[in-house]
């Protein structure tokens, strides 16, 4: 773990620190009693900062701190799920495409190019529009737009590697495909895949917020950053301070992941 830390650049360390503190805050806040993101106190709409509500209350008198913590947990969870499945799927197909017959490679490449041709957000909106408010559909939509990047990067890296002496040599020595992946392919693609994963996490958080912002994603009263922003938007004049909070959290999360991704792009 410490070796990993030393391998990171200063920017990457800042990003990791930012994300870790956000995560820690999001999980610790409920333990201190701020655990009711959806309980309304209509008489206390836009209540000022107090010990019971350290970040104030929104238009329905809900505790902002509890809502932000819940939103961060949701965004993190979804982004990790999306990135994880997109990466596994993309790497698998990328390796298969580079390793298999030309017709299979062409077919997979055709599918990937088709997905690439659609703007990512449109695809997410389309799929999540099938069943509005469904977490599964949102997840599927985002994961389906993300896998293509992994596919393309992995395919391009593995293609020249498949015919390289090192892999040919290991095959002659009697090793199977899993071994070739573990010892030759994964070391070659790992750093690129991890960079893509960090960018992908930022993208998926933004996509989720964007669908929430246009009411195509999750439904109220779920505490979700995009949804919170759009709900607070009409009260921009009266409660600027409350609107700024989810915006800041969103910026910090995306910044954290982009810093973690490092300078390689």
């Amino acid at each position: 773990m410490s070796r990993l830390f030393h391998a990171l650049t200063l920017g990457q360390r800042c990003g990791a620190l930012l994300l870790l503190s956000l995560l820690a805050a999001a999980w610790l806040v409920p333990l201190f009693g701020y655990n009711q993101p959806n309980v309304q106190h209509l008489s206390a709409a836009f209540a000022p900062i107090s010990a019971a509500q350290p970040l104030g209350a929104d238009q329905f008198g809900r505790d902002m701190l509890a809502r932000l913590a819940a939103a961060v947990r949701l965004s993190f969870g979804l982004s990790l799920l999306c990135v994880g499945s997109a990466a596994v799927f993309g790497i698998l197909l990328g390796v298969v495409a580079a390793w298999s017959q030309p017709w299979c490679d062409k077919l997979l490449n055709f599918i990937a190019n088709t997905v690439m041709a659609l703007p990512g957000l449109v695809l997410v909106l389309l799929i999540s529009g099938i069943a509005p408010g469904s977490f599964i559909m949102l997840y599927l939509g985002i994961a389906l737009t993300l896998w293509v990047e992994y596919f393309r990067v992995v395919r391009a890296t593995v293609q020249p590697l498949v015919h390289s002496p090192e892999i040919e040599c290991s095959r002659l020595l009697g090793f199977g495909r899993w071994y070739l992946f573990k010892r030759h392919i994964w070391p070659a693609i790992a750093s690129n895949v991890l960079t893509l994963a960090a960018f992908g996490a930022a993208t998926s958080i933004l996509m989720m917020a964007s669908t929430g912002f246009v009411y195509a994603g999750l439904k109220p009263p779920t505490a979700e950053l995009g949804l919170m922003i759009v709900e607070l938007f009409p009260y921009f004049a009266e409660a600027t301070w409350v609107l700024i909070q989810p915006l800041c959290v969103l910026v910090l999360m995306v910044l954290g992941f982009n810093l973690l991704a490092g300078q390689k792009a």
Partner: peptide, 20 residues
């Protein structure tokens, strides 16, 4: 046996994985 037919390469570093 398949693994009794082997090859020695011109460029030694190219035939080793450098990850481990």
């Amino acid at each position: 046996h398949r693994s009794q037919m082997l090859k020695l390469y011109q460029d030694p570093p190219a035939s080793f994985s450098t990850a481990v």
